[in-house]
Simulated scan of single mutants.
Amino acid sequence: MLFLAISTFFEFLCILLYAFVFPKLPIVKYYRTKAASEGSKTVAADLAAAGIQTEATERADANAKQLERLSNKQLFFQNIDYLLDLFLTYVLTLSIFPGFLYENTGSHKLGSWYALVLIAVYNMFDLIARYIPLIEKIKLKSRKGLMIATLSRFLFIPCFYFTAKYGDQGWMIMLVSFLGLTNGYLTVCVLTVTPQGYKGPEQNALGNLLVLCLLAGLFSGVALDWLWIIGNGKF
Rank of each mutant, 00 (worst) to 15 (best):
A44L: 13
F20Y: 08
K29Q: 06
L94V: 04
I157T: 11
A64S: 09
V188I: 15
I52T: 06
F125R: 09
A45V: 06
L215M: 14
Y166C: 05
F178T: 02
I148A: 06
S220P: 02
L227E: 00
C189N: 07
Y131C: 15
F178H: 07
R130T: 12
G39D: 00
L4I: 15
L179M: 15
I132D: 04
A205Q: 15
K139A: 01
G221R: 01
L218H: 07
Q203S: 10
I96D: 01
A48S: 12
F219W: 11
K141L: 09
N63K: 08
I135P: 13
F76H: 05
D225F: 04
R143F: 10
Q74W: 05
Y90H: 09
D81G: 12
Q66D: 14
R32H: 11
A45Q: 09
S40K: 08
P133L: 00
W113A: 13
A56N: 00
D85Y: 04
R143H: 11
S71F: 02
L116T: 12
S177A: 12
L134R: 11
F10L: 10
I128S: 11
Q66V: 14
F10N: 08
G231F: 00
L186R: 01
T163A: 10
S40C: 15
I80V: 08
I138Y: 10
L67S: 02
C159I: 00
T54G: 04
V43M: 13
D126W: 08
K29A: 11
I132R: 02
L215H: 14
E202M: 08
F160G: 00
F97H: 05
D168R: 05
T163Q: 13
